[in-house]
Design a protein around this nucleic acid. Structure first.
Lengths: 236, 236
DNA sequence: ACAATATGACTGACTAGTCAGTCATTGTCA
DNA sequence: TGACAATGACTGACTAGTCAGTCATATTGT
């Protein structure tokens, strides 16, 4: 489109244009380098947008989230969002994908002690899950996926493939190890690894919906659940 | 205030105004009685609106649901909705309240056999839940509550009071009975009745999100779970 | 200098909620 | 009983407002 640039002149901004003084990326820790590199700055902004969008989507859900709010929270103009994402919908999908990877890493990131019992491994996993997911924003993310999944089949697919399917497979392997070692009596448990993680899901949902009515000691609940599977053991 | 009735005219509707011929309630089954009573008709329409709204809210969530669609689905004009409900939000809240009552009745409606074991009672409850809730629209309703709960504290409160709190209390009583009868070994289970129902929640969510990826035999899963609690029993 | 980035005012599509007007049903009276 | 009046449930075009996405203009890094 040949664009006559007639009224190019406009003189330097009449407004203070303090654009970038006040807020910065709200969560970004101190970055001594002003990140003078362009690509770096762009990546920072992209990160700030994702952070902000996550908070808004968690708080309001997909449909009720306003991109104006996301932009304001990220300390960015609305147009900037569209430099990084095609539209609201693909932003949401990419967001979930981006956020799930570190969640998985958190969970599988703590390798079990070589000599640990299966129970200890599962309990360690539960502890990590409850501390790193159920009681943090990551837990709300899980709830968000449950909430929006039916309307975003790709998100549900992705979550199934990357989290559910792998998680259950891993859990099944652990259960079979427990059976082989004689720690677990109930052989059918390997057919439904979901049972092992069910209290974790309860914890996530309880946290979001009911914790203000009645707090739930998720870790203790999980220990009681493990007692059912492995037999009682704890002294208390 | 004196209103000259000049502008009473407003011209008769330019459209055919076939108001009541064409569409009717699309989903309403044959009603042999024309329900000539006025109040009856009104109640019928209110019911149709609630039905339609439920479907729409389940399919799209609160924010993305259009009242125009609800009206069309109910075979009613949009204005009619506002004769029955103050606004979209209170319609949603009232809807949930209306729908939860029969759900509770379904669940607690099957009284246990007097001579049944605790395990049989719980298994009967699970069967009812899976058949009447998890695999029906009621299950989607539960997911809807999980999804919208944080944005509708009153809905979450109501659900906690009427379903969660009562359900857990009843389950706790059952567990204590099981402990007293010697059917349940693990005494700590009474502290976390959530564990007993956790697979039920898994079933609801699995049904909505993942059943197209991998079907889940919820009842069998629940039986395996009960085997953990009551000890193995089934022959298969 | 000038291309790459960023901005935010603007547009147009969309929708919750309103209300003047219609008409089937019910009530009243001769 | 039949004519006429009163009622209020119902309608749907309309208003006021919202918000995703655009683009002319401004800023910035090299």
């Amino acid at each position: 489109m040949a664009n006559e640039m007639t009224k190019k002149t406009r003189k330097s901004a009449p407004k203070p244009a303090n654009r970038r003084t006040g807020e910065m990326a709200p969560a970004a820790p101190v970055s001594p380098k002003p990140a003078s590199n362009r690509a770096e700055r762009a990546a920072e902004r992209r990160g700030a947008i994702i952070e902000a969008a996550m908070d808004e989507f968690i708080a309001r859900g997909f449909a009720a989230t306003r991109l104006d709010d996301v932009a304001r929270r990220a300390g960015v103009a609305k147009g900037t969002i569209y430099l990084h994402f095609k539209d609201k919908e693909s932003m949401f999908e990419e967001l979930i994908r981006t956020a799930i990877v570190p969640m998985i890493n958190r969970l599988w990131g703590t390798p079990p002690q070589p000599g640990a019992s299966v129970r200890d491994m599962v309990e360690g996993f539960a502890k990590t899950f409850i501390e790193e997911v159920a009681t943090t924003r990551r837990g709300d993310l899980v709830r968000l996926i449950v909430a929006e999944g039916p309307r975003f089949p790709e998100v549900a697919d992705f979550y199934y493939r990357e989290v559910v399917s792998r998680g259950l497979a891993g859990m099944r392997a652990l259960i079979e190890l427990g059976i082989a070692r004689g720690e677990i009596k109930q052989k059918n448990l390997a057919r439904f690894p979901q049972i092992m993680v069910a209290p974790a899901l309860i914890a996530v949902i309880w946290q979001s919906l009911f914790s203000r009515h009645a707090p739930l000691d998720a870790l203790e609940m999980f220990r009681v659940h493990l007692d059912l599977i492995f037999g009682e053991r704890r002294t208390t």
